[in-house]
Design a protein around this nucleic acid. Structure first.
Lengths: 203, 203
DNA sequence: CGCGATCCTTGACCGAAATCAAACCTGCCG
DNA sequence: CGGCAGGTTTGATTTCGGTCAAGGATCGCG
C-alpha cells in the first residue's frame, strides 16, 4: 500500500483548505508547507525533507498547502486508509507522535524568530539552520553542520520563510558576503566562511 | 497516579532548557509557553487552557518555559512514568497525537500572523481568537464566540504573543475603542461591539 | 550564440512600528 | 484617606524594513 509519486519542482501536492484526502512520506526532495492570506501574502510554515511526514491525519482539512521546492518523490496514502491503518498499529502512531512533537518544537523555535528577531538575526539563524538540516539528509556525505550547501529556496521563498521581503533578504545576503561571513558562488549556493560570526549574529 | 498541584498567577511550572522532568494536564486556569533570547526578548509560543496537555514527552529537554497566567490547577506526572504508561496505552497515545496535531495546526496559523500580518491585523486576529478560546473553556456559560471576556494576559503578554511592543498594543487597543469596535471596561475586560469590523481588520 | 523570461540586486524614499520619555491610572496597603 | 508601585497610556522621535523603481545577472531555449 502507498503509491509512489513524483512531483517536479514548483508542483503542488496538497492545497490549503483542501479536504484532507491524502498523507505522504517524503522519499526524496524538499517541499514547503505554506499558508496564505486572501490578498496573496504567503508564509512558509514548514519544510519537509526526506523521511518527513506530510499531511493531516485525523482531521477534516489540511491547514497548509504543500508544494515541491525541488523535484521530489513521495509515497502517498489515502487519508482514510492511513487513519485506519495507524489506529491498528500503535508503533506507527507512536513514531508519528514523536515526529509531530519534534516538529512542534521546531515550529515554536521558529515563532521566536518570526516574532522577535531582526532581519540580520533571521538570516543568520536561517543559514545555520540550513547548514544543519541539509547535512542530515543525504545531501551531504559527512554528518554535522555543512560548510557548503545548495539552498532549496529562491530568494522569495527565503523571504516567505523568514517573514521578510525579497529585497531585505537580498540586502542581508549581500552584506554577509561583503563582510566575508559567507561566500555565494551562485544564486543557490552558500559557503559559510565564519560560522562563529554567524552564530553571534543569530543572537 | 498524577499529583494535583496548584500554581498561582506568575509562578513557573517548567523552565526552558530544563531537563524535561514532568508533564501535566491543565485542570483549571491558563498558562503560557514561552521562549526567550539571551538578551531578554520573549515570545509566547503557546497558551494552555483547561484540558490541554503541557510538557514534552519522549524528549530530553523542553523547548519552552511554562508559567501560569492565572491561578491554576494542574495534574502533574513524572515524565518517565508518563512515557512508560503512554507506550502501554495506545488509546492515550492516540489522544495525545490528535491533540498535538491540532496544536501544530494552531501554531502554524499563528506563524502566518507573526510573519505576515500588520499590527492592526494582529490585534484584531488576537481578539477574535480570544473570544473563541475563552468561550470554549468553561469561562463562558454559553458556547460559540463570546461578546465579552476577561483577558488572561497583561498588555506586555499580549505584546509577547503577537510579536509587538507594549506601546503598539496599547495604541491599537485605544484606536479600536475610539472607533467603537470594542469597549474596554477595565484593563483586562474586552467587549466586542462590532465583530464584523474586527473580522475585516483581521484580514 | 542571442533572445527573452525570470530572478536577483541596488538605490531612493517612505512609513509602520520601535524606542525613548513622561505622565497617568488603578489597585493595594499602611 | 494618602502614597506608592506596577502597569498602562500618550507623545515625540528614530529606525528598520517595506515599497517603488531601475538595472543586472542567469538560465532556458530556439
Amino acid at each position: 500500500m502507498g503509491r509512489r509519486r513524483s512531483v517536479s519542482a514548483g508542483e503542488p501536492l496538497i492545497w490549503e483548505d483542501d479536504d484532507s484526502l491524502l498523507v505522504a512520506n517524503v522519499i526524496e526532495g524538499v517541499l514547503k508547507l505554506t499558508t496564505s492570506t486572501a490578498d496573496g501574502r504567503e508564509q512558509i510554515v514548514g519544510v519537509a525533507y526526506p523521511s518527513d511526514f506530510i499531511g493531516r491525519p485525523f482531521g477534516q482539512t489540511s491547514a497548509a498547502s504543500v508544494v515541491a521546492l525541488t523535484d521530489a518523490r513521495v509515497c502517498v496514502f489515502a487519508r482514510n486508509d492511513f487513519d485506519r491503518f495507524a489506529r491498528e498499529h500503535p508503533e506507527l502512531e507512536h513514531k508519528l507522535l514523536e515526529r509531530t512533537l519534534a516538529e512542534l518544537d521546531r515550529t515554536r523555535a521558529w515563532m521566536m524568530l518570526l516574532g522577535r528577531k531582526s532581519a540580520p538575526e533571521k538570516i543568520a539563524t536561517f543559514l545555520l539552520d540550513m547548514s544543519e538540516r541539509l547535512a542530515d539528509n543525504g545531501c551531504m556525505t559527512h554528518t554535522g553542520p555543512a560548510r557548503h550547501f545548495t539552498l532549496p529556496f529562491s530568494r522569495q521563498q527565503v523571504a516567505d520563510l523568514l517573514g521578510l521581503t525579497i529585497e531585505t533578504v537580498s540586502r542581508q545576503f549581500t552584506k554577509l558576503k561583503a563582510d566575508g561571513v559567507v561566500a555565494l558562488p551562485s544564486r543557490r549556493d552558500v559557503e559559510i566562511l565564519d560560522r562563529a560570526m554567524l552564530e553571534t549574529l543569530a543572537g
